[in-house]
Design a protein around this nucleic acid. Sequence first.
DNA 1: TTAGGATTGG
Length: 786
Amino acid sequence: MPVQLLKIIKGQSETPLPSHLQEENVQHLQEGCDHTNKYIQGVVTLSYPLTKLGDGTDFFKIVLQDSDNLCSQINSINVLIYGKMAEECAKIIRRGETVIVAGFKVVKLPTVKEDGTHGYHLEVSEEAGSAIYVCVLYECLNNFFLLCPHCIMPFQSVAPKYVYTPMNHLKDGTIVNLYGVVKFFKPPYVSKGTDYCSVVTLVDPSNVKLTCTLFNGNLDSLPKIYKVGDIVRFHRIKIREYNGQMQGITSAGFASLTFDGTVGAPVVPRTSSKVYTFMDEEQKTIEELRIWAASNISISGPAAKLSGVQPMQFFDLTCQLVGKAKVDGSSFLLKVWDGTKCPYPTWKVPVEAKDLEGEKVLLHQLRNFVVDILVYDNHVQLAESLKIGSFLRIYSIHTKQASADNEDVSHIEFHLHGGTCYGRGIGVLPESNPDVKELKAFLESVDLADSQNMESMCSMDLDGTFGNGTDLELDLQRCQQLSVTVLTDHQDLSNTELKTITNSTAPQQYRIRAKLRTYKPQKLHQSVKLHCSKCNSLQEVPDGDDFDFILRGSANTAPNPELRNTSWYESVTWTTQDQKQREIAIHFVKHDEMLQYPEDTLLMIEGGTLKEIWKLTKRFKCVIPVRSTEDDLELLDLSAPFLLQGNVKYYGCKQCSTPKPVKSLSSIAAEQQPSWEPTEIAQVLGIELLQYVFIMKFTLVDETGALNAYLFDYEKFFQIPASEILTNNFLQQKMEMTMNTLCPPGRKLGDLPWLECFIKSYNVRDATKNQVYYQIFDTTVAEDVV
DNA sequence: TTAGGATTGG
């Protein structure tokens, strides 16, 4: 049986090659030697159609690439197959497959080619005693089994396996297998030809990118990529050069697996094939790629929740489809929700009731959550095919701010423009997707009954307007009735109108119900200041450059060797290897004569840079920058933070502080369990601690008038510590969302929500006049707002 | 064949 299929399951063949066969390397072939008992193994990169020679003999030619020597200049060789063997091989050998050729004859060619093909070729035939083994992986086996069941010869010793080419070793005209991390992708879309198309850009640890253009008439056969950072395994992808760069394109037999790129997530391939090869070794590859990707691929995407959308942005939305409707030939409407509310009024696309598909009752129940997304052109066909209830990720939705002629208020429109720029498109997510599971759980937790109760409350308040009002009016009435802030005390006080307050003398305290017409500063980071509660001064938070400057200055003073290793701290010193030869000393404060765990340790550093100090704060509880004097360590200039803890820099008031020698810290170190609280450290060091505070000016209005009230808040109002906001993106976003809820941009006054607040009036006198100011107190943002 | 990454129109 000259042509045999080797059944490969989990990378192993079931039976060994005949024991007399020895492997030969493509590079070491020589003419004139006996190759009866030799075999070479390679991947078929080319195969030619079966032809007949002049004498009627069947002839079949393939090009084999030595998969173990991909980098070698000469790694391919032509194999010429004659007679019955040619006929059989032509039936079953396909490009990309691994083939073993045994008992061949080596024939030298007249000239050596320069294209990587060998200077010899191999000739094989049944008559010459040759044998060809085609390594059939299990994923293809069923087809072959039907074709040629008697051919399956189990054997084991050789374990042919897929060879994966690193992206920096790709060559024009080859068909390869590869692993890569998705850096960019276009979800499958309907091409202008007959197939679906998906464009995927991959990278691998060789740091070379490869953009692949994948076509298939079956949507399911294209890789199931859901986000940047996913990992793919491509089999039999063709490499071509295009515009001076390597490009991947689907070849016959292309197959792919896709994996979640998250470190630690289960390694479960997404694929349309029911049978595929996947081994422990491949699991390891995925895990290694995940770790590589974690520090080499940026997967931070734009905002993905409706509550976080801003006008004029592009974002990806994970959502559930609850309605759809034909609009016209070139556009189609999708009604979706994600369980959060868009902070702006949203555009409702007018459609004929008969054209709207979806559960009407549900659409009504969800009307405050649902947004209309209009999709255009090439996305229409895919949108039409979507099933109501399915979970979607819509990529690169454009939020456009607009106002209709008959509206005073501007609204937000959601468009999925035509084309596929930036991966614009629609993907259907399976229910097994972790993001879908999370979304489903969230959607189930959304309390629809709650919003309905509020409506009935409104309808009572509004004395019958419920029956007449449209959905939009009801929504507005509801938001007019509810307060987005909560009083934390004095609930017994009754409301006072703003006009009454501005007409009264100060000081007094009031409960008010008003709307936030505007606020300052609009750039929220500018609202954070440092406050000294002793002298009541406010100052700007110094930036990193000031600190850097002070550190550079203090690095000029070398650490004093006499101040190392005292009874209460242990010191480590070294000199940097660079030109500056900077001396650094770190003094670790001991507790009970012992060094503590890093996360409980306070250390002092001399000669450190901004970056070094920042790194130390990640590992140790407290870092205090110091410098040497003749007889003790001392704090730096108070324009620099005297203490760093986590992300927070603590400053002292220059005016009110009287710095003490740092050995005063030893008193805290001697405590039973030193907590290293900033207030306590400040106190023993003679520092008047400055506190981070939000200072904002709110312009509040009601039916009777307006007044400006100051918000002076350490943490209570926003439920966000002012000390942490400057270094925490998440908190910044949270605060921005809160302000968008309190004062949604683009709405007219009537549509703004109510704020219930306590304010107190007070007098400020200067030489010429007395002025009354107002400050908000004992008020917090409602829990469901933040 | 199709697309070959690189937003904003309805």
